[in-house]
Amino acid sequence: MDPSILSGMRGFGVATIPRWPWFVFLAGGMGCLACSSLSHLLACHSKDFNLFFWRLDYAGISLMIVCSFFAPIYYAFFCNPYSRLFYLASISLLGVLAIIALLAPSLSTPRFRPLRATLFLSMGFSGVIPAAHAVILYWGQPHIFVALGYELAMAILYATGAGFYVSRIPERWKPGAFDIAGQSHQIFHVFVVLGALAHSVATLVILDFRLRLPTCAD
């Protein structure tokens, strides 16, 4: 945004809207992909490394999911501090519990692959409640519905990626043919990146919506 425009809109509370929630989301996304890159690079070193780095990979996904909530919830409930605190505290607690569970070596085995996918999806779909709350608060505001559309796209992309992750398609159909490229885990990562991009757009739409609003009523 042009600094002169920002200065001229101080009376409307634009200058008081912090940007740190947006950077929390970016940091979470980069942290997730960094954990994933390290895991894929080093997990083949030894059995001990394999167990540690795949747990780190799962923890990174949980981190990104939690960090993804901060910006949209903070901006959507900027004028509702109690709701904002409740939702952010709830998803943070759920994320910590999920990370603790995922770091357990016993849960890193293929046997618990559906459990891990369920944990990720549960955290992601826990956003349905604050999303519905935001729609009720700002019914009729086009920004909210546009953002909700992108968030729905994000949910579909994440769920599709999780579906490939759990089902092991296509390598289950032709074992050995997708060892280098085209396996379910790679497809899963593609959908995760696409979902994160959809969420980025949704967050920017909500931020733009907040910047256009006047200051909160006393």
Rank of each mutant, 00 (worst) to 15 (best):
V135S: 02
L204E: 12
W22P: 01
Q141H: 03
C35I: 05
S37N: 13
A89M: 07
A101D: 00
W20P: 10
A217P: 05
A104T: 10
W20E: 09
W22N: 11
H40D: 13
S106P: 00
F86C: 08
A196K: 12
L148N: 06
R10C: 15
A134D: 05
T109K: 02
L56W: 09
A76Y: 06
L204M: 15
L213Y: 01
S36T: 15
F53P: 02
L211G: 11
A196H: 10
V201M: 11
S46H: 07
P130E: 00
F23S: 11
L42T: 14
P142I: 08
S122C: 04
A202P: 07
F188Y: 10
F188N: 10
L93K: 00
Y82K: 14
I73N: 10
N80H: 12
V66G: 04
L88S: 05
I136G: 04
I100P: 01
G29Q: 15
R84I: 01
R116M: 10
A132S: 03
H189A: 04
A59V: 06
S126N: 07
I136P: 03
L157I: 08
F86T: 13
P114R: 09
K47V: 08
G31R: 09
L33T: 15
D57M: 00
L137R: 09
V190D: 01
R55F: 00
F209W: 11
G11M: 01
L51F: 05
A181Q: 03
R113D: 02
M9W: 14
Y58P: 00
F125Q: 05
R10G: 15
S184I: 06
G31K: 13
L94A: 12
I180M: 08
Y82T: 12
L85N: 14
T215V: 11
T109P: 00
V96D: 05
G29D: 13
D179M: 05
I156K: 02
R19N: 11
P214C: 05
A155T: 06
C216Y: 04
I144Q: 13
Y87L: 02
K47D: 02
P142N: 06
V14M: 07
S4I: 09
I100E: 03
H40I: 15
A117L: 12
R10N: 15
M30P: 07
L107Y: 11
A217I: 08
L94Q: 09
P21Y: 07
F209G: 01
F12Q: 10
F112T: 01
F69S: 01
F188T: 12
M154Q: 12
G195I: 09
L157D: 03
M30Y: 11
I169M: 14
C216Q: 01
F70V: 04
